[in-house]
């Protein structure tokens, strides 16, 4: 049997608006993925170590406060330090086009802005290169 895709859905920063994070988490779970939701107010350090501990393939960051330019680069830096560059990072939230381009240049796999469809997000994650090919027994 193929290993299920493991996704960490995280809410970094001070913002408590978790509607989007929760909807995405449920949609990914309904699509057959293994979803871990961190809860609110996670620091980049907490997110990187949760990703390592949970052995995830994908990290989804939900940021609606405009703090993405401070938070996302720090997460990317920590993943490099921990030698976890094979983990894909996806950002969802209120991210202007210019910032989205900037984040992608820093290694973010995709940025989803308001109105993005769940189906597109699920499809994108399924299409990511497999991080682990070891089948479960």
């Amino acid at each position: 049997m193929e290993r299920k895709i493991r996704v960490l859905v995280a809410k970094p920063g001070l913002d408590g608006h978790d509607r989007g994070a929760k909807v995405i988490a449920r949609a990914l779970r309904d699509a057959g993925m293994e979803v871990i939701y961190t809860g609110l107010r996670q620091t980049p350090e907490m997110i990187a170590s949760a990703a390592l501990q949970e052995d995830v393939d994908v990290i989804g960051l939900s940021i609606l406060s405009g703090a993405h330019n401070a938070i996302v680069p720090r997460v990317m830096e920590l993943l490099r330090e921990k030698d976890m560059t094979d983990v894909s990072v996806i950002v969802g939230g209120i991210v202007p086009d210019d910032d989205a381009e900037q984040l992608k240049r820093q290694g973010v796999a995709a940025v989803y802005q308001p109105g993005a469809s769940l189906e597109d997000i699920v499809g994108f994650i399924r299409g990511l290169p497999a991080r682990k090919l070891i089948p479960e027994n």
């Binding site: 920063g13 001070l14 913002d15 406060s65 405009g66 703090a67 330019n69 401070a70 938070i71």
Partner: peptide, 17 residues
């Protein structure tokens, strides 16, 4: 957000917000 969460502007948690 820092004010809403009771943090001063120079609190490390306020970074970027």
């Amino acid at each position: 957000l820092p004010t809403l969460m009771g943090c001063d502007a120079d609190d490390p948690l306020s970074e970027g917000e």
